[in-house]
């Protein structure tokens, strides 16, 4: 490790065997994140998968903070943990996923998927470690990702993509509304041959919703896995 390439800073001697405190913290949080991601894709309880996804995304937010990208970290917390996971939970409940353990969460090709994923992980980790084995990030000095720096670069160099992104979000909003409305309009004449997918489950979940509504905490999406059992009836009514 003595020949440090010119592309790195080449100022201070670094070593693999003397990790800094930031590296140790990054490693520990990374282990938590990786474990939560593994549980997310392997658990058989669908709501638990969404709640472990919260842990994984929150761990990634902490990693962003350790990389001094504070604005990205808070955007991650706000958008992913705050809205995307709540949307996923709503989706799980609107499709009436089983709350308990569902034995058919994994399809039959999970061993092929495991082989592909392990092969891809091996290849990617090997290539990445081999490529960046002598590269260090200098985290000292003024932070490289503060909100001021991010805002200046965003509104100085990236204004046009930023505006285009707002148009994209508007298109996504309109598209989601159109998809929902059109599906409902099409479902009306098709209720005969497809035996009315709306009518049966509503009556099936209505007693469950009324039973578990007092225990529900709508304002706490990161609550324990038993409480989200309530909202499907409410959402079905709202739709």
């Amino acid at each position: 490790m003595s020949p440090v390439p010119a592309v790195s800073l080449a100022a201070a001697p670094h070593g693999f065997l003397s990790p800094t405190g930031v590296e140790i913290a990054f490693l520990l949080v990374g282990l938590v994140t990786f474990g939560a991601a593994l549980v997310t894709v392997t658990t058989r309880q669908l709501v638990h998968a969404a709640l472990w996804l919260v842990v994984a995304l929150g761990g990634l937010a902490v990693e962003y903070l350790l990389l001094t990208a504070e604005f990205i970290a808070w955007v991650q917390v706000l958008i992913y943990v705050g809205s995307v996971v709540v949307l996923l939970l709503f989706g799980l409940m609107l499709t009436k996923a089983p709350i308990g353990r569902s034995p058919d969460a994994d399809s039959g090709n999970r061993w092929a998927a495991l082989a592909v994923a392990v092969a891809a992980a091996g290849a990617l980790v090997w290539v990445v470690v081999d490529a960046f084995r002598a590269t260090w990030i200098d985290l000292d000095g003024p932070a490289a990702g503060t909100t001021a720096v991010t805002g200046q670069s965003l509104f100085r160099h990236w204004v046009l993509p930023f505006e285009a992104l707002s148009v994209l979000l508007l298109a996504a909003l309109v598209g989601a509304i159109v998809l929902s409305r059109k599906a409902k309009a099409d479902a009306e004449p098709n209720t005969g041959p497809t035996s009315d997918p709306n009518a049966g489950p509503v009556t099936a979940t209505a007693p469950a919703a009324t039973r578990t509504t007092p225990t529900a905490t709508p304002g706490a999406p990161t609550a324990t896995a038993t409480t989200p059992a309530a909202p499907p009836g409410d959402q079905e009514g709202a739709r």
Partner: peptide, 26 residues
Amino acid sequence: MHLAYPAVLSALLFCVGLYGVLARRN
């Protein structure tokens, strides 16, 4: 910080997601 730490974590997370996309049914 060594650049390999975030790069390896990113690669591992990507492969976990890849497994999930291929193996999940819902």
